[in-house]
Amino acid sequence: MTEPLLKITGLTKAYGALLACDGVDLDIRRGEVHAVIGPNGAGKTTLIGQVAGELRPDSGQVGFAGRDITRLPVPARSILGLARSFQITSVFPRFSALDNVALAVQAHAGSGFGFWADARRETALREPALACLERVGLAGRARVPARTLAHGEQRQLELAMALATGPRLVLLDEPTAGMGREDSARMVDLLAGLKGEIAMLLVEHDMDAVFALADRISVMVGGRVIATGAPDEVRANAQVRRAYLGEDEAAPC
């Protein structure tokens, strides 16, 4: 049994009296798509924030690729191969789509002492950036300023930026949030295309997307993981049905 890519043990984070994460244990295997679901306020975003390095846990550990990264700052995690997308679309609105991705490539292009180089002419940045845009289906929009892209396209661009950092694990915080049915389906297709190659920690409210993508699902309620397993197991779990999935099914009819 190989060790997991991401290993979360006993992760705890409190805001005052509120335990947003309460001793969370979670493993993500190499190449696995692992979805975390749960009602609002269950602590999913707090969990992702701690894995990404934006929030410092009160106790517990985050291990990544065999290293303890609990106290590692955000940029260092990115260099190790941990990428994230934000709940709110985060692209650089004035840069072209290509420049957005090139920036991500640049951050990982070695020592970074090519500071004075002309950023636009550099094929070492342009080519990998263009390849990432192609991967998410935005190659035709490379020259367009990011702010004029449609919402769905901006989320695709964000994914391209995450890919450009050469990640082993991508943290996806509601990748289909605010999308229409069509855009949402395209995003799910894109993510499905990356399956097996890049591991993903997926927080998502859209259950169709979750069940289409996830290899395993963990259910969080009140800061705790109450169940982890394959989609069918989770669907069948009585506790989960009661706490979350079954809310409407449980309604008397």
Partner: peptide, 26 residues
């Protein structure tokens, strides 16, 4: 406007967290 450093500066002025998340040592 033209150099890599300038791109980072402009990106940093626009969205700090994102620049860090991309792996730039802020």
């Amino acid at each position: 406007a033209r150099t890599r450093l300038g791109m980072l500066i402009r990106a940093g002025a626009s969205n700090r967290e994102m620049v860090g998340a991309l792996g730039v040592d802020i």
